[in-house]
Simulated assay, not measured.
Amino acid sequence: MTGGADKTALDMVYAAETEMQLAAAYAAWANGYDTETAALGYCLPFLIAAWVARHVPKGEGPLLDAGCGTGLSGPYLQALGYDDIEGLDFSEEMLELARARGGHSALTQAALGGPLPWADRHFAAVFSTGVFTAGHAPASSLDELVRITRPGGFVIFTVRDVVLEAGGFQDKFTELVATGRWQAVEESPAFRAFAVAEPDVLVKAYIFRVV
């Protein structure tokens, strides 16, 4: 790890093999998360707003920030005119910081990969960034995100390059297209998740329209 951040914290996150270990890693890191990732130039929570603004008209209905962490994306989407943004994260410590930041209309503790506590077709769009990476939420999470997004709505997210094939994400994309649940809209080129450090950490952004 470079850039002067806490190597142990990020190493614990990437080394987690169970949901319990990952929760413990984020609990230990929560208070230093924002300053340490900022030092690395972590840009995904802010960049995701560009894809939301490109595809989702304001006033269409509630959005879900799936894996919202400390709530970094919320205030920037609010500045762009999106005022009904709910947040989801499995770490209560992260949600406490998101709550203090005030960028979400509601915050829910739950884990991606399992059932989510919303009705079918509830959201106009869901977005998720930095969550589909090594040791984190599985590709199967996309099934629930599609379920809770209304037809014509969007699922917008980033995927780390090292899990795109190995984690089954590409297969899940193909399955959801083949079964008529969503249509591909946009796929970005690979780009750096950290503007300052970690040049080998590459992600792509994906946008699908729910059918």
Rank of each mutant, 00 (worst) to 15 (best):
H104W: 12
G81M: 08
F46H: 12
P117A: 12
G113A: 04
A53H: 10
E92N: 02
E186P: 01
G102I: 09
A184H: 13
F173H: 14
S141Y: 11
L164C: 05
F194G: 03
V177E: 14
I148C: 08
I85F: 11
A38R: 04
F208R: 09
W51L: 14
E92Q: 07
F157I: 08
F191R: 01
A16W: 02
I48M: 05
W118S: 05
A28W: 06
A23L: 13
E86R: 11
A16S: 15
V210H: 12
D89C: 04
A27D: 14
K172R: 13
K58T: 03
V155M: 09
A24V: 02
V162C: 02
G87A: 10
A38K: 00
G153P: 10
T70H: 06
A23Y: 04
G167C: 15
G135V: 10
E187Y: 05
L44I: 00
G3A: 13
A79Q: 07
K58D: 00
E92A: 15
V177T: 13
A110D: 09
D120G: 08
A50S: 13
A16T: 11
R181E: 09
V162K: 00
C43P: 00
V201P: 00
A53P: 05
K172Q: 15
L176S: 03
A100Q: 15
A27T: 14
S73F: 06
Y26M: 04
R54W: 02
G69N: 04
P62T: 07
L22N: 15
Y42Q: 01
Y82G: 00
L164K: 04
V13L: 09
G81N: 10
V201Y: 08
R192V: 08
G32C: 00
G61A: 08
A50T: 06
A106F: 05
T133E: 08
D11Q: 15
M20S: 11
G59C: 13
R121Q: 11
L88Q: 08
E186Y: 14
A111L: 05
A53G: 03
L97M: 12
A100T: 04
H122D: 04
D161G: 11
A24Q: 15
E96K: 09
A134C: 03
G113V: 05
P117F: 09
F90N: 01
L95C: 14
C43R: 06
P115Q: 07
G153E: 13
L145A: 07
K7D: 09
L142K: 05
Q170Y: 10
F194W: 04
F90G: 00
T174D: 15
Q21L: 09
M1G: 15
G103Q: 01
T70E: 13
L107V: 12
G130C: 12
A197F: 00
A100Y: 03
A25F: 03
A139L: 12
T174E: 13
G153C: 13
F46P: 02
A193F: 03
M20H: 14
G87P: 03
L64T: 07
R192F: 01
E86H: 11
Q78N: 15
I156F: 07
L47W: 09
R192E: 11
R160N: 11
T8E: 07
Y206C: 01
A23R: 10
L164N: 04
T174K: 12
F132Q: 04
P45R: 03
M12N: 15
S128E: 14
Y33N: 02
R160Q: 14
T158F: 02
P62F: 01
T149C: 02
E86Y: 13
E165L: 03
V56Q: 00
A53Q: 02
D83M: 04
S141R: 05
A25Y: 11
V203E: 07
T149F: 05
